[in-house]
């Protein structure tokens, strides 16, 4: 089982310039662990000290916020399109 994780521009300097990475982790915490072990500099950018995802970025799976799909309980599937993005808003 493999899927693609798209890396936002500000983080590509920690992934050797790659804008997407093929991953196999089953769920969100395993994905953060997989990314952290493959790209050690990425770890503190995406994880709090306790390993939880940082507050100010969002993870989307096939264009849906992962928190609407069960968050940490969501099981990634073959071919999922996973996107990491800083949370932006403002602008009503």
């Amino acid at each position: 089982m493999a899927y693609t994780v798209r890396i936002p521009t500000p983080l590509q300097k920690y992934t050797g310039g790659a804008d997407s990475v093929a991953c196999q982790a089953e769920n969100l915490s395993a994905l953060l662990a997989e990314l952290s072990s493959r790209f050690p500099e990425l770890k503190e950018r995406i994880c709090e000290a306790d390993g939880q995802p940082r507050r100010f970025f969002n993870v989307y799976v096939n264009e849906e916020d992962i928190r609407f799909l069960g968050g940490s309980t969501y099981q990634f599937k073959e071919g999922d399109d996973v996107l990491i993005l800083p949370s932006i808003a403002g602008g009503c």
Partner: peptide, 9 residues
């Protein structure tokens, strides 16, 4: 858009 270290505004 945000901090390149921690994504915060």
């Amino acid at each position: 858009a945000g901090c390149d270290e921690c994504f915060a505004p």
